[in-house]
Amino acid sequence: MYEIRTWPDKILKQKMKEVDFFGSEKLKEYIDVMFQKMYEHEGVGLAANQIGIPYQIIVLDTTPREENEENKEGIKLALINPKIVHKEGEIESTEGCLSFPGVQITIPRAQKVVVEAKDIEGKDIQIDAEDFLAVVLQHEIDHINGIPFIKYLSPVKRKLTLEKYMKKKKELAKSK
């Protein structure tokens, strides 16, 4: 039921509904399934609409998963109704996306962001993030607002990237 939706699935192009059922079993179920699917597909973040859930929920886990990764700290979060309230600086970010398998693009992102959200119980959360965490937050919050990461490419690069992606997607479908 909760499978990764790939482009051009229409749910990836829509702004998701705000959650108003805090503390509920349904919300806990959504978050559990989201973490499960994110780990299953080796992602660092997942937006609810990427598995067909039409709400403003994102999960992320930036904890290093490989023993050989540098000793850097990570963070595991589930954010409800997240909004970016401040952006600062700019970095080039090379990103992939579970909804665009096989696509890697380099796009500009804010280096620092401040995000306001709710936790599973509806309590306010504020996150000051920079660099990798800031990029992951921007990517996932864009998803729940119906903004795919390819939007940040120039029209020509976007067209070429989508043509290449759709060709590869058709080839994979034929081989199954």
Rank of each mutant, 00 (worst) to 15 (best):
L172P: 10
E95T: 09
I58A: 12
I125Y: 10
E70F: 05
G43L: 02
K15V: 13
N68E: 12
L77M: 15
G23R: 11
A48Y: 09
K118H: 12
Y2C: 03
H143D: 12
E18S: 15
N71E: 15
K87A: 04
G74P: 13
M166D: 02
K169H: 08
A48C: 09
G23H: 01
S24M: 03
E130V: 13
D119E: 07
I150R: 06
Y55H: 13
M34Q: 05
Y39W: 00
I147L: 12
Y152E: 01
E67Q: 07
P101R: 02
G23I: 06
S175E: 15
K28N: 14
G89I: 13
E70G: 13
D119W: 02
V114E: 05
F35M: 07
S175W: 04
D131F: 11
A117H: 05
F21S: 10
Y30K: 08
I150L: 12
W7P: 00
A78I: 11
N145V: 08
H86R: 10
E95R: 11
V135L: 10
K87Y: 02
F21V: 03
I107L: 14
S93K: 10
L60N: 04
K10G: 00
Y165S: 05
H41T: 09
K17V: 01
Y55Q: 12
Q50L: 06
E130C: 14
E69N: 04
R109G: 00
M34F: 01
K169M: 09
V113C: 05
G43R: 04
K151V: 12
S175M: 08
K164T: 05
V136N: 07
L172F: 00
V136I: 15
I80Y: 07
I125F: 12
D124S: 13
A117I: 08
R5I: 06
N71C: 13
G102E: 05
V103I: 08
Q111W: 03
D124G: 07
M166K: 15
N68C: 07
I150N: 09
V114D: 01
Q104I: 06
